[in-house]
Amino acid sequence: MALEQLVFLVFALLAIVTSLGLVIFKDPVHCALSLVFAFANIAGVYILLGAEFIAAIQVLVYSGAILVLFLFVMMLLQVRPGPSLNRLRFFQSGFGPVLGVAFLVEVVLVVLTSGFVLNGGNITKPNNTQAAKMQAGVEYSVSVNVIQAAGPLTIQGKADGIQPNTVGHTAALGKELYSTYLFPFEVASIILLIAAIGAIVIARRSLVSDEEEDHPKRRGISLGSVPAQGSLQAFEVERQTSQSQRRKEAKKRTVILKK
């Protein structure tokens, strides 16, 4: 129990600190990455509160889809020139295979460790199986109905603190969502449809060509003769010129040595 509280505290503090980072960082990309971390920590808090399904949805939708959308828009609008990744190429080629092998070893160890062996589809802990969860969900929903019949405020007494194992089962949530809250669910799907159509209509390039259509800055990567200051192309050009200068100097040196 103490360990759980400690983990809870760590998740909560990290969530607060990283959400402060969202406000403090100057660069919008750093803000977005800080926000990804904050969302992951809040998902951890959700798991500790017994809402595993919401935590999974949080990771998938928020940090997986919405934040990636934000980062795409940032790249599209070129909020800042991208970092020059040429310096990191050595680390890429060096550390990438090592990390891949480490990951493979990890996964194989997890599969082969006795605690995770699946014996006929049953995971070793009996109260962790799918059937037990379904059973708990059914009992849970039945008890919810009883409670609702008894009155809205007499809800499962004995609760100081949160019991993570009594609520939050995905089966119970699904039943609730598809029976009692079916109408809001359908309304939500219509909201998503309208949002998709509206986004396409708003962000669509207008068919009338305005006079700025061929502005060189309009493209994300400038293909003009002079690349933008600090961009990847500028770095590449600089590198090539410095290399050629170095080669010339080396030739001069060899000539001098020969003399």
């Binding site: 609760a159 609520v167 939050g168 949530l173 609730e176 939500a188 909201i191 998503l192 509206g198």
Partner: peptide
Amino acid sequence: SGRFGTSEGQVFVLLVLTVAAAEAV
């Protein structure tokens, strides 16, 4: 939702999430 032992709160979290996605888009 965890305090009261019901799952209505989680249903509304799903709805809020939908609205958040629509708003972001």
